[in-house]
Amino acid sequence: MASKILSQKFYAEMEKLIPRYPTRVALLLPALHQAQEETGWLPPEVLEEIGAYIGIHPAQVREVASFYTMYNLTPVGKYHVKICTNVACCLRGANELVEQVERKLNIQCGETTRDRKFTLMEEECLGACGTAPAMMLNDDYYENLDSKKLDQILESLE
């Protein structure tokens, strides 16, 4: 195999997890998370490297990775904006927020801006319905949103 893409740290984290599970395949979800943290998304080479490490076929890695919405199998922008539009957030105006971002960034949901700075997505319930509407920006939650607050957050991003 070609030279490794994933870092020493990735392998060190995985070695720590090995004794935690009775099988090696159980490392797959943690490995995909850890890898995505390093590379932002999961290109085929990374899936292959994870497969080689765990000892499964790359197709099996992809089969599993593609089941879960959090694993990015295509590149995403530097800022991944995920606005919840499930029931509680809709009742509190989430659709209007999505439209606001679409207008502001000039993209549709599911798209990335040309400068690769923003990706916008609709998200299912984030478990923040008491502080709706809510969104995630990369790994962080932003809650009790309104139009002004959302604008300020987007403006503040480099």
Partner: peptide, 20 residues
């Protein structure tokens, strides 16, 4: 950690997900 799938709240879906 799960990775974004409602069905993993169902206990046997969860167990499969735990097993990778």
């Amino acid at each position: 950690r799960g990775a974004g799938a409602y069905i993993c709240g169902e206990e046997t879906g969860l167990l499969n997900s735990l097993e990778g």
